[in-house]
Write a protein that binds this DNA or RNA. Structure first.
Lengths: 201, 201, 201, 201
DNA sequence: AATGAATGAGGGTTCATTCAT
DNA sequence: GATGAATGAACCCTCATTCAT
């Protein structure tokens, strides 16, 4: 996956991702800023991408791919349903601090396109990406089945929605300063877990 | 609320909202397009707003206010917990087709700012707006209590998060074409409802 | 002379002259500023002048006319060559503080046009104005002849130039901050007078 | 001095000076005209100057520096007080045809700022320039002393003013069409010389 | 291959002028 | 007559893209 990208392209992507995670708006980024962030000349960008938009879109796809893979790796490394779910929440907490986050994708497939409309072009296919995100969810549920914590597989769509719902409830907490004053991160995570269990039993 | 805006400002707002709902990206809208959409001259915009960004930000706030109020009105008009929840889902379905949707706010308070970063300025206060959105949720839950469909009020934050989760699960369905092939809108709504009941009982 | 201008035109002129004397650059004055300074509506200006430039040019001519007349009056009121010359210097000192000054005209006929190029149009005739300025000079010289302070009339051009030269020398002093540190206003006036006498004897 | 300016800046300056000398009003010059006059692209100007005004102000300073230096060189090259003074008058005659002339500076230190108000900024220091202009005057007087044509150095300020006055008298002639009809250029120069000698003896 | 100087199309904003009231 | 809301032509400046080096 990474292998498709050469040295310079990665430099450009890494620079761009840093800019975006630091709060830069992809619609307002200048080519000069991309060049500076990548530590290369402005013209060089056009040796690897036809337009500025293509570079930005590429960087976003590259980043999401990396993040999804990393999230999957982290969750697989944890043992047990609860530990895996907690890790998923931890991924959330971390990525909410970045402006370019996997959450977009996990919550809704249209997230990335909403984030940067130039991703709507034909050259970008998110079905594979979405499949990976779904795989994480299934991996989590599988652990639940095996531990007998949740009921045997029923309606796949319902289960998918339940996980999304539990995560969204948690995300709602993260986004609201007024909730933080009354609720700790752990309490919010606990609620989210309760929520998921109830939904799946 | 509307009364704060005069004739021309409303023309500009209405034109802008139409543009955005038709798919225009707020970052890419041209002043000439705003003028054309409002049916006024380009210079007139600057008689009412200091910059293009201010006009766009104003239009978004104006629209969200209107939509929240309208959503509340619709839900209040329905009788019964289930009918009210179904109406909330209906609001979702309709607003997902627009690019400027109340969902942003209902799901996450930061939605509007994410949508258009110029809303981060000090002149924009979303706490009142968020309070309205919370009111809708509380109104819905109240109906549930009264009908005995859901347990007596427990943790307010948990309930809030549960409603968000149920809606997000439904939104997940709406955003995924592959789900549509296997699931009808009504089935997805049914799942979302099941989900909410389980979470609140 | 004043009689050619009606009530509103005078308001506009007076406002404009105030603006310019306060340091406004005639090329950068906005119509709105003219209207505000005159205490009238923006559109009203166009009932009396075809363009902004015409109003400004008119105001400058109006002002110079008034100033020349006033200068002449003041100098005539003084008795004796020296007193009249001192009064001329005093007019200078006062008008140097204004940005729209008779000096321009006294020193060089092209001064006004240099100051505001729109005065070059055919509708502006400065020969009458220049005649007035020349009259002041001749009035001054006449007093000198009568008092026997300067020689009987010789070459009219030479005398004219001599007065201009004496005034310019004084103006040079006024314009240089470094001279002010070493020379008082009275000393500079004295030099200018010495200069004139030598040139005319 | 010239060395501070690079290739492109000089192109821009030279184009601007040509425009102004051809009668263009610095307040009315368009960026496109500057670009065309310099034979470069419009955007290039902004690689070397932050604003249009900065470019114009820079060109004026650059030009005055060059003209003062050139005038000094010409006058030094002439031998004898009278020849030097005649050369100074010749410089005048030539520069009066240009709209951007050293006269402004020789006559009054505030000339340049009056000509273009953006020269009032802190980044422009005319004291050096004025010193150069003063040097020309002192060089001229020195020749007069040595030849015994004028008295030994007396009051420095008076002498300075006398030269300015003599030049101003001549300038008065140059600016008045009605004088030209009765007086030749040579006669006017002769008067100016007489004038200076009388003032300095 | 890499650069960054140069370009000019494009767009935000200003402001002189008009005209309905 | 007087106004000022409305207009859009005009213009400064930005910045994506090119291309000579």
């Amino acid at each position: 996956m990474d292998k498709n990208y050469n040295e310079k392209e990665k430099k450009i992507f890494d620079g761009l991702i840093r800019l975006i995670k630091d709060g830069a708006n992809p619609y307002l980024i200048k080519v000069q800023e991309i060049a500076d962030a990548a530590g290369i000349g402005k013209g060089t960008i056009y040796d690897y991408f036809k337009t500025k938009e293509e570079a930005i879109a590429g960087a976003i796809v590259y980043s999401i791919n990396k993040e999804i893979a990393e999230a999957y790796r982290r969750i697989k490394n944890k043992q047990g349903f609860r530990a895996k779910f907690d890790e998923l929440l931890a991924v959330f907490v971390e990525s909410i601090k970045n402006n370019l986050s996997t959450i977009n994708l996990l919550l809704s497939a249209g997230g990335a396109q909403k984030f940067y409309e130039y991703l709507r072009g034909d050259q970008y296919d998110f079905t594979g990406l979405r499949a990976h995100a779904d795989e994480i969810v299934r991996h989590l549920l599988q652990a639940g089945y095996e531990e007998g914590i949740i009921k045997q597989p029923g309606n796949r769509y319902y289960e998918q929605m339940a996980v999304h719902g539990a995560l969204a409830g948690f995300a709602c907490f993260l986004g609201r300063q007024d909730f933080h004053d009354r609720l700790s991160l752990d309490e919010a995570g606990e609620m989210s877990y309760t929520f998921l269990l109830k939904a799946l039993n």
